[in-house]
Amino acid sequence: MRSKVVFFEVQGGNDKGADGFRKDTMPMVNALKERGVDAEVIFYDKAREEEIYNYVSLNGIAYVSRINPGNLKEEQSYFQMLRRLCEDGVIGMPHPDAMIGYGSKDVLVKLKTTTLVPDDTFAYYDMENFRQQFPKSLAYGERVLKQNRGSTGEGIWRVQLVEALEGQDEAPLDAQIKCTEAKDNHVEYWQLGEFIDYCEQYIAGENGMIVDMRFLPRIKEGEIRLFMLRDKPFYVVHKKPAETEDAFSATLFSGAEYRYDTPEQWSNLVESFLSQLPEVRSLLGNYDLPLIWTADFILDTNEALEDEYILGEMNCSCVGFTSQLELAYDVAEEIIAAIKENTLTV
């Protein structure tokens, strides 16, 4: 009889503790065991994939993925193994296609029909489309380009014209642009056409894409991250960029300051987001909500001069909570609840 909750990790990497595991994995394993649920960690290895699949298919009631697929050379193989497990009735936390849907940068384009994302948000999967559309986007104001891969702000660029255009609806390729990378807020000056060519590295290869969205000046007031356990917000991280002229990055590496708030302190945002979760879930494939995930928002001002919150991105591949390990008990409760819910519907 299946009874184990299996946590998938990979060996190595700078996110591991002295015991070789992610620092927030064993607290979850131990919290489950304290509640009478058998749990263990398995290190994914392409060479042992069939052995791992057979073992989990036979013994696992659910899996929890603690791997950033972008760091796996065998990303597609790992996803396919997870799909096979889900087809066998193992409860996916998350399902691999939910991991892709919620975690990819083009989630913003998929959610353009909601009030969470401006309708002038675009995704580019090939250079031809990028060359055609981006000069038009830029003609109407500052933009932010986000690559699908990378982390800590790498490949996320704020792009602005050095000189404003006069009555043109498309920026010329020889226009001078100022580009600020979120990784460390450093500034580079380019000709637009050359910068477009430079960005080909973000589109090339498997899962390559660029998302193009409006720059929101109120990012200077801070990015607001909702930390979610399935449909429950547990805390809010307010990430304020460094107080320098060009800074817009909300990463710790770039000098941003973090503050941890309760969901009640952001009740308007939380209530608005939760009310739209059913639509979000439907638009992203109607999979179960991820076990641990985040949604990042930036303040904007609408036509009525009221505050509104714009979704910047979501993450669900391997969201950590190493600074608040006591949450492991809440995660364990959510895993048990998800197992009961899925068992009742079978």
Rank of each mutant, 00 (worst) to 15 (best):
I61T: 12
P241A: 05
N342I: 03
F43D: 06
E333M: 11
L274A: 09
P69A: 02
E170A: 15
F215T: 10
R48C: 13
Q160M: 12
E206T: 14
E9Y: 05
N207P: 00
G208R: 01
P118F: 01
A242F: 09
I100T: 14
I210F: 05
T121Y: 05
P94L: 00
N30V: 10
K16R: 13
I100W: 13
L226G: 07
M213T: 13
L58H: 14
E181F: 04
T294G: 12
S249R: 07
S137F: 12
K23H: 07
E243V: 05
L229F: 14
R66L: 01
P172T: 10
R48P: 00
D38G: 04
N71L: 14
A338G: 00
F248V: 10
V5Q: 06
G193W: 07
V237A: 14
N59Y: 12
V236T: 05
M209T: 09
F21N: 13
G155K: 06
D197P: 01
N54M: 09
K73H: 11
D126C: 13
G208S: 06
L299T: 15
F195E: 02
A31L: 02
G13W: 02
Q11S: 13
V107S: 05
R158G: 08
S57N: 15
A247L: 09
R158C: 07
T345Y: 00
Q147D: 02
T345D: 00
D24M: 04
Y202K: 12
L311A: 06
E223D: 13
F248I: 13
E206A: 12
D88N: 12
A295H: 01
P118G: 04
I335Q: 01
A139N: 06
K146M: 04
E194M: 10
E75D: 04
L327K: 08
N68V: 03
K23D: 01
K23P: 00
L72M: 07
E142T: 15
T301E: 12
D38V: 05
R230W: 00
S272N: 15
N207T: 11
K220A: 10
A123P: 02
S282N: 13
D288P: 11
T114S: 00
D231M: 07
D296W: 03
L82F: 04
G167L: 11
L85K: 03
